[in-house]
Write a protein that binds this DNA or RNA. Structure first.
Length: 731
DNA sequence: GTAGGGTTAG
């Protein structure tokens, strides 16, 4: 490695020229350097000739080491430390270098060092750099401090500084402050408008963006490509294709310079608005395309679940970087195809064309959570640690969610406790985890701790905490929290919260109050709200209210199979067989199909899937004889299948008992008994709600076979142990 | 000799 004493062998010598020429040549050599080594050689020469101690020259060296394409800030800092009396320009260069580096906090450290040494005072160039650093750090306190200093040093009307403050407040999510700065700029320029528009885009206020755009027109400020990027992004967020198309023609009419980035933004707008045709037309006409253009097209097809097309794009891309893989994996995960997501993840691993990043792992963990695939989930956790992948809040939230949904509440808590700066998503995921395991009190305690930690709950937090109340029958607590949402926490209750409240009230038998609650809703109830009431009516056998809820539900969602099922269960429970068969006939005639019950079980890292009455499994024979054996043992302890849980889908009475035997969760449990060691808990994930019969079945198995069973259904966990269930039979 | 606004995946 070259040191300062290494002779600069590769540099041309100029023995016959004057000192000035040598110096000028040296300085111009700085611009020609393409790596740090060359720069070090120039540096060494400058030290020998004494040129280094000329402030202008040493600053040039700092600029090159801090801002060039091969920049090394460590080196820049070492150069800086050799300068006996750095001037303001030199300080600014170093501050600027750090501001856009991976360590923006260093920018502020250097700034404070400068103040502390007391030789130089910051000027109008210094502030945009440190404010940028504060934006990168999203540190409201520090940035606000700079804002104060700017005003005190009477730089408060400098448009460059004010524009960077808009950007800063915007990236901290404080749009009010950003807008206040904007309004107070005496002479706004285009960048002021653009900064404000971008802040509104990032804060997810597309309407405000449109408002600003109109105002610009009124004030005769001509937009440029950056403005249009913001406006297009707002169209994408609003899913407003009409306006989006208009914006594209506006760009054309007003001869706004269209570069690759702007084309990509148009593509993205078309894709987000669901018009793959427009996107394709533009894409085909684009002279220049980059990886973003390709990834955006890929995303367009994947979002629409046109996977054949998506794969064609994927294969045709010039390079399949991790973003492309992530598009595929996350679209599978979000479109309810977790198995395909995991298969794609495995392909990524074998292809080795790209390295999984946090986004990949978040989607993959979420797929594991959906499937209950604890083995792969754990493997990813280890992978993250081994690869030294930086844990961010997205990742820790996914891990918490994965462990909780795979039944490992303790491990979820372990991850949660290890997070130093917990964000609202970490807290919400943990509350949801406790809720689904029926630990309502613990969820409420955690919510209090969250408030103590000064983390502001959001709409999701409230859905989760209300859910916790409903699973544990905490009626008063739920009611109180619901009423505090808006006045105390500023979260306007949405349909999900109303649904939870109806569930809390109805499930605990307060059917009248639940009905009244719905009638007093300020927003129109949707199918879920009525569905929650209907489910409660089933639980408490209220036929009259059930019919009402059902008719409302079907008015909103005529194809809701669940409504017919619930109603027919209610009729069956009260012995109204005529109505039951009438409903059945109607369902048959209108071609309504029940979503087939399906259970998953992971054995030795492989996911096995069972449908009702499934006999496609290679070990099907063994599974059924296991079930027979279980049935005999259970009968001997007095278990009789509860036929009222059987939906009246089986014609012959004698078939009922048999049909109950075929529920997918029973098949999965039987397979677990065969395939898993006696000390391993049997983990089953079911897509529908577990029926009462299977619930008693699982309880008895846990006692007779001394096996723990973790059954996750559509709504929650049932943890069977020694003949009891964690839900205390309240579900 | 120094400055501010930007497109893809969660």
């Amino acid at each position: 490695m070259a040191t300062l004493s290494t002779p600069p062998v590769s540099l041309p010598r100029h023995p016959n020229t004057t000192t000035t020429t040598v110096n000028n040549d040296l300085l111009s050599l700085i611009d020609q350097c393409t790596n740090t080594k060359q720069l070090q050689q120039v540096h060494a020469r400058m030290l020998r000739t004494g040129l280094f101690f000329d402030p202008y020259s040493s600053s040039k060296l700092i600029t090159a080491s801090a801002l060039s394409s091969f920049s090394s800030l460590d080196y820049a800092r070492r150069v800086f430390d050799q300068i006996p009396q750095p001037n303001l320009y030199t300080w600014n260069t170093l501050i600027r270098g750090y501001a856009s580096s991976s360590e923006p906090s260093q920018s502020i450290v250097v700034f404070l060092e400068m103040l502390y040494r007391g030789c130089e005072l910051p000027n109008k160039f210094t502030y945009p750099f440190v404010i940028k650093a504060a934006s990168e750090l999203k540190d409201l306190l520090i940035g606000t401090g700079f804002h104060g200093m700017v005003i005190k040093s009477s730089l408060g009307s400098d448009v460059f500084i004010l524009n960077s403050l808009i950007h800063f407040y915007g990236s901290c999510g404080d749009l009010d402050l950003a807008y206040r700065v904007f309004l107070n700029i005496p002479k706004k320029d285009l960048v002021s408008w653009n900064s404000m528009i971008t802040a509104f885009v990032q804060g997810n206020y597309p309407n405000k963006v449109f408002e600003m755009f109109r105002e610009m027109e009124l004030e005769n400020v001509k937009p440029n490509d950056i403005t249009m990027l913001g406006v297009l992004s707002a169209c994408a967020k609003k899913v407003d294709i009409e306006f989006g198309r208009w914006v594209c023609s506006y760009i054309e009419r007003n001869e706004i310079r269209v570069n690759l980035t702007l084309n990509n933004a148009m593509l993205d707008m078309y894709v987000k608005c669901g018009s793959i045709e427009d996107a394709k037309r533009l894409f085909d006409n684009m002279q220049e395309k980059d990886v973003v253009s390709w990834t955006t097209m890929l995303d367009g097809y994947a979002q629409l679940e046109k996977y054949d097309e998506a794969h064609r794009v994927f294969e045709a891309m010039p390079c399949q970087d991790i973003a492309a893989w992530n598009v595929l994996i996350s679209s599978y995960e979000q479109n309810g195809k977790p198995k395909e997501a995991l298969a794609t993840f495995r392909k990524l691993q074998t292809s080795k064309t790209a390295k999984p990043d946090e986004v990949t792992l978040v989607s993959t963990l979420s797929s594991c959570a959906q499937l209950g695939a604890i083995d792969l989930g754990r493997w990813i956790h280890v992978y993250i640690k081994k690869q030294g992948i930086k844990m961010n809040c997205h990742l820790t939230t996914s891990l918490i969610d994965m462990y909780a949904k795979c039944g490992e509440l303790e491990e979820a808590l372990e991850v949660f406790n290890s997070v130093e700066r917990k964000d609202v998503f970490n807290w919400s995921a943990m509350i949801a985890g406790l809720a689904m395991h029926g630990r309502g009190r613990a969820a409420l305690d955690l919510f209090s701790r969250m408030l103590e930690a000064k983390v502001k709950p959001n709409a999701v937090t409230f859905t989760n905490i209300l859910c916790a109340c409903s699973h544990t029958g905490l009626v008063d607590e739920g009611r109180n929290l619901f009423h505090q949402m808006e006045p105390i926490y500023g979260v306007v209750p949405g349909l999900k919260h109303y649904t939870c409240m109806v569930d809390i009230l109805g499930r605990s038998g307060h059917l009248k109050e639940a009905m009244q609650f719905i009638e007093e809703m300020p927003i129109a109830p949707n199918a879920s709200v009525w569905g929650a009431l209907l489910a409660s009516c089933r639980l408490h056998g209220n036929v009259e209210l059930a019919e009402k809820a059902c008719s409302q539900l079907l008015e909103l969602d005529p194809k809701n199979h669940g409504a017919y099922v619930l109603l027919s269960n209610i009729y069956a429970k009260s012995g109204k067989w005529d109505q039951v068969s009438g409903l059945r006939k109607f369902m048959r005639d209108s071609g309504l199909k029940k979503e087939p019950g399906c259970s998953l079980i992971e054995v030795n890292g492989i996911i096995h899937e069972f449908l009702v009455g499934d006999n496609s499994h290679p070990l099907s024979k063994e599974i059924y004889s296991k079930l027979d054996e279980v049935a005999t043992r259970l009968k001997s302890v007095g278990y009789a299948p509860n036929e009222s849980h059987l939906l009246q889908l089986v014609e012959e009475e004698g078939m009922k008992e048999h049909a109950l035997n075929l529920h997918s969760e029973k098949l999965a449990i039987a397979y677990g008994l065969i395939g898993m060691g006696p000390s391993q808990p049997i983990r089953v994930v079911k897509n529908l709600r577990v029926c009462g019969d299977c619930h008693s079945f699982a309880k008895l198995i846990s006692r007779l076979y001394e096996r723990e069973i973790l059954l996750r259904d559509r709504y929650r966990f049932h943890h069977f142990k020694e003949g009891h269930c964690s839900c205390m039979d309240f579900w």
